[in-house]
């Protein structure tokens, strides 16, 4: 049983999911995740398929626990939960792995993700005033303030970009919903 640890941060959960599945296809199966750290266990290539899901509430809540137990009944193992992001896996031999089979439930999940990104972007917004103010008043401290401001704007930009991306995905699905279920 050999393990491999990778340090990486993702802003886009669908990229992250794709990356985790690429590892699984090579036989490296995610078994642990904490912020910025992924632990993979060496195994058979393609044995597991992974899906990520933003849970509606903390896994400590009984409702969430009952949901995770319900998933387990279908052979879905939840290898980790970080900040309400659940990392589920299912044996590829059990068939295709899709949590959501209709537009309404897929939309509900995307809307939950959007709400998260919006709240993160909004939390960062007041900092923009402080940051710009600092930049303007920096004077000789500019060597210090400039990189910090750059970091702030990059992070805020990434969150804003994800908010827009998910928003667009939702609009596409809602357009579909006009016609299909």
């Amino acid at each position: 049983m050999s393990f491999k640890t990778v340090h990486r941060l993702f802003w886009d959960f669908e990229n992250e999911q794709r990356w985790i599945n690429e590892h699984a296809a090579r036989g490296e199966h995610l078994v642990r995740h904490t912020w910025g750290t992924y632990v993979f266990e060496q195994g058979k290539p393609g044995e597991w398929t992974y899906r990520m899901e933003l849970l509606g509430a903390s896994p400590r809540k009984p409702e969430t626990r009952s949901y995770l137990e319900f998933l387990a009944e279908s052979g879905i193992e939840t290898v980790a939960v970080s900040e309400q992001w659940a990392y589920h896996r299912k044996r590829a031999a059990d068939g295709p792995f899709e949590l959501y089979s209709d537009l309404d439930s897929r939309l509900a999940h995307y809307k939950r993700v959007l709400a998260l990104y919006v709240s993160l972007t909004a939390a960062l917004l007041p900092l923009s005033v402080v940051t710009i103010d600092n930049l303007l008043d920096a004077g000789r401290a500019l060597w210090f303030v400039l990189p910090l401001s750059a970091v702030y704007f990059i992070i805020a930009g990434l969150f804003a970009a994800q908010t827009l991306r998910v928003g667009k995905r939702i609009r596409t699905l809602e357009a579909q919903r006009e016609v299909f279920e």
């Binding site: 899709e98 209709d102 509900a108």
Partner: peptide, 10 residues
């Protein structure tokens, strides 16, 4: 029709 577990739970 293959019901997804997330959809079914909801």
């Amino acid at each position: 029709v293959t019901l997804g577990p997330g959809t079914l739970y909801g």
